[in-house]
Amino acid sequence: MKKIISLSIVFLLIVSCGKDLPMSTFDTYGPIAEEQAFIFSIIFWAGMVVLVAVEAAIIYVYFKYRRRKNSNRKAAQFHGNTKLEILWTILPVVFLAIVSVPALSAIWNFATMPENPAVVVNVKGHQYWFEFQYPDLHVVTANELHIPVGKQVLINLDSNNVLHSFWIPKIAGKTDIIPNQTNQMWIQADHTGLYYGQCAEFCGESHALMRFRVIVDTDEDFAAWIDHQKTEAYVPNDPLEKEGYTIFMSPKAGCGGCHMIHGSKKAKGRIGPNLTHVGSRQHLAAGIMENTQDNLRQWIKDPGKIKPGNIMASQGAVYMDPNKALTDSEVIALASYLQSLK
């Protein structure tokens, strides 16, 4: 009895605790996550019935037939019961056959890619950040995925390094990102807003810090965002920002070797995130901190401290060569330049 009570409490906890958390799989905002939560609830309740019944049987039998002091009761001697055994072989089969119908149909639903997706996004997994390419719209960005509300979005997943997994718990379950095998999935979000995503396949030292955000816009907002992303980067006038610009483009710092700033001739790199409109993003370093002057300075100063094992910290010239190390004033200038890239 105690067990049953505690199990119902447990269930209440699942429902009550899960709902409003940022990455709860119960709090769904898209058809895929919804169907996944529905299928889970079927098997959950079915499982609960079996769990409670069988746990109760185990505990009942153990207490009911325990050896009591001063009792001469003899144990019943029987070897089995064929009818009963056939029954409890067949029953689970029937049970599973019934619950498998919605489960199997959902597999096909998820695997059928939309014929006319509103947007196609190529997701590239990197060691500890996500790159988002909109091939039809000619936009490349990082770590913040914008999609229009209520529309089917086709996602192509690819990696040129290790395995990753693309997961937005409130919108859709995960699909792995595998080198030499482009996986596909489709997502749809039915409410505007900001959603959390995270890499779900171990990908190295800072796997825990490989996150991203999904921003679901209205059609107008999405179109405006795309238009803005297509524009060339802002060229600064402010002296501090200008100083930052000079440092960024200088061969000494070499930022442009890895980072792209659209419109600049010296920043054409494709190894690191595209920084053309980095100032317009809400978060830094794959969704691990707010995009503020202060955080940006810390990140530029010592990225390896914030995200151990990242490639910029281990291969960037200013971090490898003490002679090229950035001074505090250079860091401040760089940060204000990058923030100006709205």
């Binding site: 959950f44 498998s100 995960k174 699909t175 171990f202």
Partner: peptide
């Protein structure tokens, strides 16, 4: 028993997309 039942839950690949990893 608990582990077995959660195992059956995972067998449903459609919802396992959420639980995997």
């Amino acid at each position: 028993l608990i582990g077995g039942i959660s195992g059956v839950m995972h067998s449903f690949s459609a919802s396992d997309y959420q639980q995997q990893d």
